[in-house]
Design a protein around this nucleic acid. Structure first.
Length: 750
DNA sequence: GAAGTGATGTTTTTT
DNA sequence: ACATCACTTC
């Protein structure tokens, strides 16, 4: 129990918490992962069999780290703990029990691209126009329906949802949704949400199965609980919240770091958790000591987050001393920002002897990476970009994997669509459209439909050849190990040949990617060769491919590179020196989030996550102009910058009123920036005692105060009840805005 | 059926 | 700026 001595009092209490429900509220850098891993180790030490423990995380990386750390304490027994992402653990259970819900255990997983492509086919088959039905909107709405346990049938019965669709001019949404679900099922495919939804269905449908897993996993731990959605919480409850249960569940979360509300995550789960488990004596542990960052950083973060309304009260304190103040870099253009940030990195490396791996550049959107890459290359600084297109999303890799998928599950329509004419074999759009139409009419998969149809000789030959090819691959996948099968498929499919003929630079890199995919499979075989139990089939290999991201490649330990990633991807990571870039209105906060107070609050939490990644050195940069959609845009510095107390910022004794003034810039300035200089805006002052009035009370003619927009006059109100929309003229902005009253926080002034 | 062309929208974040 | 897609031409 030596490890207990490495813990502070609260941490030790949480770690030694044995039975019953517990909530650990863990600020950034407070040793959250340590608590989770030590608790698992402690449970094992106290005689709980490792295979009775399930630990759920959000990323594979977090899961892997957790497993490694448990192993370091307990040794190889750690392997028997089921630790993984929600999606991968659930997929594992689903594969074992697939038949119960009418799926083959070899079901394939549709990634986002597959889902989109499926939706396109559906729109096509239902003769609905893509202009009227935006694919991304459809996906989001389907996802949110599933996440809220609304089946197509329930959806159709729900007058409110149907009315929403009619109002939004997408009256046939429910048909699309229903068709989408039907086709996924027919194809033996699950999308990301299905991995959650279908597990819920399974547990619901088969009480015996639910019981089996409850008995199997009497101890449940959940990381990043603030990022769980409604469905994930419902499943969690299925596991531990039943009559006679010990309710041995420990969840760890931080409401201030909730950054996935956009995809349905809700901190309501934290609140509900406390409520739901209250009768069972839920224990609350608050980890408030920050071991990661120095004081200026922690205090700045604390202060920023106070601008958010709702939060679980806590005071995070640094144990590391004052440290360095935050540096601010102001640039005129995005190019200049890139140059000055990289100059600062060079300077830090020289002066502070930081290694590349000590440094990270974090941005709001992946598209921002390019400029930093260019500048790092110029300085010969090795770097790695995480996120964006992951390895498994590259076209050539997906193509080959599509063949793998077909070899395992030929009903997989999306995989079939992808490769039926790649490499070119004379089966074009016309033919595919015919097959699709027939398949839709018969409610069958493409694979089932092809043999039932006949075509002109040339086309028929091509089709017969394709079917024979896939059947051959199916056979190989059954008989050979993953590597041999993969190699065979890569060769026989013609993909290898196709790429070899392409001698362009991109062609070579595509070939390289195919080779490293094959290398990866070879490694998969080699790694567990000694393990007799291990399934080395191609089916086993591709099981979780769709769940892997760029962050999941194992990198050599001694690699020394600067890390570039989105703030989202950086969650849970830490670096001695962090550069948070692009702090501009419209970008961070994102224009997509700016029309609601909730959106802004999520962006603010995102900024909070960003700066708390830093241990000792934090640099924040912004550019007054940058290219977007191929056009130069001018933006104000982010409102978040104004929320940092100047005492934490280097060289800023006074309030940061004139971030926008043109006096500090030097190097790398090009072009004409008169417009930028003229755009100075004073931040709108919001009094401390701001108290929003109930939205129902707001009427036309009133003077109101809005948190972001300041004072304004309500010109008109339309809509009713939940959908009341106010048209307000804001005096300081000199413009009128339409605001949904349900969301807006307005205080009536007169 | 394939290849080329101009128009159009797109980008917030990820399993 | 870039990718995707509908449309034309061979």
């Amino acid at each position: 129990m030596q490890y207990l001595e490495e813990l502070n009092e609260v941490q030790r209490q949480a770690v030694t918490h044995m039975e019953g429900p517990a909530l650990v509220v863990a600020g950034p850098g407070s040793g959250k992962t340590r608590v989770l891993t030590y608790r698992i180790a402690h449970l094992i030490d106290r005689g709980i069999p490792p295979h009775n423990i399930m630990a759920l995380t959000f990323t594979n990386k977090a899961a892997r780290e957790m497993k490694e750390r448990i192993e370091r304490i307990t040794g190889p027994k750690a392997y028997n703990v089921w630790a993984g992402t929600f999606h991968s653990i659930f997929a594992r259970i689903l594969r074992r029990e697939a038949e119960i819900i009418g799926y083959p255990s070899s079901f394939t997983i549709y990634d986002t691209d597959d889902s989109k492509s499926l939706l396109k086919s559906i729109l096509n088959d239902l003769h609905l126009s893509k202009d009227q039905y935006n694919i991304n909107t459809l996906r989001a709405r389907i996802s949110s329906a599933k996440t809220n346990l609304i089946t197509p049938r329930l959806y159709e019965k729900n007058e409110e949802l149907m009315a929403q669709d009619r109002a939004a001019k997408r009256p046939h949404f429910h048909k699309i949704y229903s068709e989408y679900v039907a086709r996924c099922k027919r194809s033996g495919a699950m999308d990301f949400d299905d991995l959650l939804y279908r597990l819920y269905e399974l547990l619901q449908k088969s009480p015996e199965t639910a019981d089996k897993y409850r008995k199997r996993f009497p101890f449940l731990l959940i990381d990043e609980f603030q990022d769980t959605n409604f469905l994930q919480y419902q499943i969690t409850k299925k596991f531990v919240h039943y009559p006679g249960s010990q309710r041995n569940i420990l969840v760890v979360g931080d409401d201030a770091q909730s950054i996935y509300a956009f995809r349905g995550a809700t901190i309501q789960n934290i609140l509900d958790f406390q409520k739901d488990f209250k009768p069972y004596g839920v224990k609350l542990y608050k980890l408030e000591k920050n071991y990661r960052s120095t004081e200026h950083i922690v205090q700045a973060a604390n202060q920023i987050i106070t601008y958010n309304k709702r939060q679980i009260p806590k005071t995070i304190q640094s144990v590391r001393g004052a440290g360095n103040k935050i540096k601010l870099i102001k640039a005129m253009t995005d190019n200049e920002e890139g140059k000055r940030v990289v100059d600062a990195i060079v300077e830090q490396k020289n002066r502070l002897h930081l290694r590349n791996r000590d440094i990270a550049i974090l941005y709001r959107t992946n598209a921002q990476s390019r400029i930093f890459e260019e500048n790092l290359r110029q300085h010969n600084i090795p770097y790695r970009v995480f996120g964006g297109l992951s390895f498994y999303q590259r076209k050539e890799v997906k193509d080959l994997i599509a063949y793998f998928r077909l070899a395992i599950n030929p009903q997989d329509d999306e995989a079939l669509r992808r490769v039926i004419n790649y490499p070119k074999r004379g089966i074009g759009k016309t033919t595919l459209d015919k097959i699709s139409a027939q398949a839709a009419a018969d409610q069958q998969t493409l694979w089932q439909t092809i043999p039932k149809m006949s075509f002109a000789p040339r086309t028929q030959n091509a089709l017969d050849g394709f079917v024979a090819l896939i059947n051959n691959f199916r056979q190989t996948a059954l008989e050979e190990n993953a590597y041999k099968a993969a190699l065979h498929i890569a060769r026989r499919s013609g993909i290898m040949q196709q790429l070899k003929n392409d001698t362009s630079i991109e062609g070579l890199s595509r070939m390289e990617n195919i080779n490293s995919l094959l290398d990866g499979i070879s490694e998969f075989i080699a790694q567990d060769e000694d393990n007799e139990e291990k399934d080395l089939s191609l089916a086993a290999y591709i099981q979780n491919i769709a769940l892997l991201t760029d962050l999941d490649q194992n990198l050599p330990e001694d690699d020394d590179f600067v890390t570039l990633m989105s703030v989202h991807a950086a969650k849970g990571l830490e670096f001695p020196s962090v550069f948070v870039v692009g702090l501009e209105e419209q970008l961070f906060p994102s224009f997509m989030a700016m029309d609601s107070p909730e959106g802004i609050e999520e962006e603010r939490r995102l900024f909070y996550v960003a700066i708390t990644r830093s241990e000792s050195y934090l640099t924040i940069s912004y550019a007054l102009s940058r290219y977007r959609y191929g056009q130069m845009r001018y933006n104000d510095p982010s409102r978040f910058l104004l929320e940092i107390d100047p005492q934490h910022i280097e060289g800023a004794a006074q309030p940061m009123a004139n971030l926008n003034a043109q006096n500090t810039s030097r190097a790398g300035v090009r072009g004409n920036f008169k417009r930028a200089a003229g755009k100075l805006k004073t931040p709108i002052k919001v009094p401390q005692d701001f108290r929003p009035s109930p939205s129902a009370a707001i009427q036309a003619g009133m003077e109101v105060l809005h948190l972001q927009f300041g004072k304004g006059k309500v010109l008109a109100i339309d809509g009713a009840r939940d959908k009341r929309v106010a048209t307000i003229f804001f005096h300081q902005l000199k413009e009128q805005k339409r605001i949904m009253l349900k969301f807006a926080k307005l205080q009536i002034l007169s």
